[in-house]
Design a binder for these strands. Structure first.
Length: 717
RNA sequence: GGAGCCAUAGCUCAGUGGUAGAGCGUUCGCUUGACGUGCGAAAGGUCGUAGGUUCAAUCCCUACUGGCUCCACCA
């Protein structure tokens, strides 16, 4: 053994050895009876072999189009620690890997590449574009997967899944059809958050709100003065509304106002949504371009006028503005209003506008027909499941946040106007224009009129609609090498044990998995929810490309070893909290790996021997026992930092600094204890630092109790 | 406007109803035959502020101050 541990010499080989050994695949019960897990654990089950409880984590599928970043490294470290621990405890352990097609993200990135070549998505037909993105994604997907291997993820590659696998798509279709058939999906005309540059609508969650200063224009509408930040939309006005409790306007309600420039009469109506104290207390109602106005418009059965098209240009206005971009039109309209003497006052106000989370441009509220999921019944069940403890949030504060979300959700728009994704299986009859939803195939005959020509909705599902079904979709369609029949995975491993992911996708993903899981399977998708914090830099700053403070986990793994990188991901801070990651921290963990290596070098240099135990031996064995017990408890409570700290303290300071030092006077007598404590220490270390522990194990395996550490049994407590 | 979180050693963070810990950093010693990616020792905190509960609070409660994050239709 070399004087210093050189991770680069071993890691790839060790991973290959594990993977080839089949250690990543769960060992299943020998019988293929699908409800085995539900059998009472009576004496007869013992006779048919040792029955192992399943332990399952479905990996949050990283975007297939991106390389891993340090945020991924954290979940890989956390989940792999849990997985390796449970595997060593003898449970039938499955960590199911996958990749997400990440609809909008991926198409957005791909279009940027096209732009570099002077092309755009409009240069290709749907199928060609899809094929091009598919090929591009396949390349990146394998990069991402090899990075998972570098970091030591002991996931079952024989069950690897992609959100666009045909079998996954089938399941997603089935869920959509069920929702539709049961009246939980509707096609609605709504104000959606439309990004004219991306050419698609976004869900509420994908819009960033920023405060900015704008002009608030007080416009003379004849009988009444209104205040607006968007004078260019006045041509889409259909009414003026005031608050019913506003004494100032009592007598003019029911009369009309006069729209400037085009001299159109508008009814003056009352609605409680109008704030008396804002502006003049009179609100112009523009249902085609504002969500509140749309709501008021619906209530009062007002007409809807659109004056902005999907490219963000004016339409249905006096001809001089037609074709202008919104900002340009605003200036022109203001100029004309000014000339007509209709602007009474301009003041600056700070208000909140929506920005596209992709390109940070302005979101245009637009009227559009999209598919929506009625969220209330789903959310109610999810809330119940959390309250009853069927799904447990390990951290109380994330439970609060999840509940808060579930109580405040609105209907979920699942249509996206992009090609990269799962195309919505809705077909409109050419003749009667009615929609038919199928489980994928084009219908033969229109159920309404019997016609046989259809047009499929060109839209695709929101990515989260498919990833929201991930736990059951993966298991329903997987079997792996260890299992011959599909559905057996589902029967055995569902509901999964733990969902582990970052808090920033709690509302996008976690609560939707609970809702859809309950809906589609009748059971929760997972028992425990472990939410981890984000990785920040040394100064606690959020890591982002623009700040230039990115830490590439693969670089770090190359430089200091995957073990050090992983340990750095859980060291020092609770899983649920953000961590500040510095290279110093990772280097410190590299030093620990080296310490372990040198302990082994010392112990393994001496031949095995037998001797009577003295007090020093008894003491270290007692400390080992107490450490094992603390580590086990900490791991069961997902307190990984605590577990890591205990191991570090014991191995370095108790075992190396104290016991080994004292043993030098009595090497032969101590050898047996040295070997035993080393063996048990390696087991404790293994979930955290799998490579160095396995390398050492292989160096001295004839002295240890298992041929391969990954399959060794967890120390007794 | 709402919601959640945080405030402990120079830095990053653990922690407990009975007067505080780690890693890194710093200082001073160490060519001990596993390791200088190391060994030994040390300095360094009135645990944000003000009240309250308690025999006792850094830990529980209230208010305040400062910071972070998320949500929200005030045009």
């Amino acid at each position: 053994m070399d004087k210093a541990y050189n991770h680069a010499l071993f890691e790839a080989k060790i991973y290959e050895m594990w993977e080839k050994s089949g250690a990543f695949s769960p060992s299943l019960p020998s019988t293929s009876h699908s409800t085995l897990r539900d059998e009472p654990s009576g004496s007869d089950s013992k006779s048919s072999g040792r029955r192992m409880p399943p332990f399952t984590i479905i990996m949050p599928p990283p975007n297939a189009s991106d390389p891993l970043h340090v945020g991924h490294a954290r979940f890989i470290a956390i989940e792999d620690i849990l997985i390796r621990y449970h595997r060593m405890k003898g449970e039938s352990t499955l960590w199911l890997p996958g990749a997400d097609h990440a609809g909008i993200e991926t198409q957005f990135v791909f279009e940027r590449k096209l732009r570099v070549e002077g092309k755009s998505r409009f240069d290709y037909d749907r199928d060609t574009l899809y094929k091009m993105i598919w090929d591009d994604v396949q390349k990146n997907k394998s990069t991402m997967e090899s990075q998972l291997r570098i970091l030591g993820a002991s996931c079952d590659w024989t069950r690897n899944k992609f959100t666009l696998d045909p079998e996954i798509i089938k399941i997603v279709y089935k869920t959509f059809k069920k929702l539709y058939d049961e009246g939980l999906v509707y096609r609605g005309e709504r104000i959606v958050n439309y990004c004219p540059r991306c050419g698609t609508a976004y869900s509420q969650l994908e819009v960033d709100s920023v405060e900015r200063e704008d002009n608030l224009y007080y416009l003379d509408y004849g009988t009444i003065t209104i205040a607006t930040t968007r004078p260019e939309t006045i041509f889409a006005d259909v009414a003026v509304a005031v608050n019913p409790n506003d004494a100032r306007y009592k007598d003019i309600v029911g009369k009309t106002a006069l729209l400037p420039l085009v001299e159109r009469e508008l009814p003056i109506i009352e609605d409680v949504l109008v704030d008396k104290d804002f502006g003049t207390g009179a609100l112009k109602i523009t249902p085609g371009h504002d969500a509140t106005d749309f709501e008021i418009g619906q209530k009062h059965k007002l007409q809807i006028v659109s004056v902005i098209d999907e490219a963000g240009r004016m339409k249905n206005t006096p001809s001089k503005y037609v074709g202008m971009k919104v900002e340009e039109a605003r200036q022109e309209v203001v100029k004309d209003l000014e000339a007509a003497g209709k602007i009474k006052k301009i003041e600056k106000i700070a208000h909140v506008v929506g920005l596209c989370y992709r390109d940070k441009g302005l979101i245009e509220p637009m009227l559009s027909k999209q598919w929506f999921i009625k969220i209330t019944p789903l959310a109610k069940k999810a809330l119940e499941a959390i309250t009853k403890g069927q799904v447990k949030f390990v951290s109380e504060r994330y439970e609060k946040i999840a509940k808060h979300w579930l109580k405040n959700l609105r209907d979920w728009n699942i249509s996206r106007q992009i090609v990269w994704g799962i195309r919505i299986p809705a077909f409109r009859c050419d003749k009667c224009m009615k929609w038919t939803v199928t489980d994928g195939a084009e219908p033969v005959k229109c159920p309404s009129c019997g016609h046989d020509k259809f047009v499929q909705d060109p839209d695709t599902f929101d990515t989260w609609f498919s990833s929201g079904q991930w736990p059951y979709a993966t298991l329903l369609s997987s079997s792996g090498i260890s299992n011959k029949e599909k559905f057996e995975d589902y029967n055995y491993f569902y509901p999964t044990s733990v969902m582990e992911t970052a808090y920033d996708i709690l509302p996008f993903w976690v609560i939707r998995m609970i809702m859809l899981g309950l809906y589609a399977t009748g059971d929760v998708p997972f028992r425990d929810v472990v939410i981890h914090g984000l990785v920040r830099d040394k100064e606690g700053q959020k890591i982002s490309k623009s700040k230039g403070n990115v830490i590439d986990p693969i670089d770090m793994a190359n430089k200091y070893g995957a073990d050090a990188m992983r340990m750095g991901m859980v060291w020092g801070a609770l899983v649920e909290n953000d961590i500040s990651l510095s290279e110093d921290n990772i280097r410190g963990q590299r030093n620990f790996a080296n310490k372990v290596w040198n302990i082994a070098r010392f112990v393994l240099a001496q031949p095995s021997s037998k001797a009577k135990k003295n007090d020093e031996d008894k003491k270290i064995l007692k400390e080992l026992k107490s450490t094992t017990s603390k580590v086990t408890k900490a791991l069961d409570k997902y307190r990984l930092n605590e577990a890591a700290g205990e191991i570090y303290e014991f191995v370095w300071h108790k075992f190396a600094d104290e016991y080994i030092e004292k043993s030098k006077d009595r090497r032969e007598q101590a050898q047996k204890t040295l070997e035993f404590v080393l063996q048990e220490s390696l087991k404790l270390i293994h979930p955290f630092m799998p490579f160095v522990s396995e390398v050492i194990w292989q160096e001295g395996k004839e002295r240890f109790d298992s041929p391969i550490l990954i399959n060794a049994s967890w120390p007794k407590t």
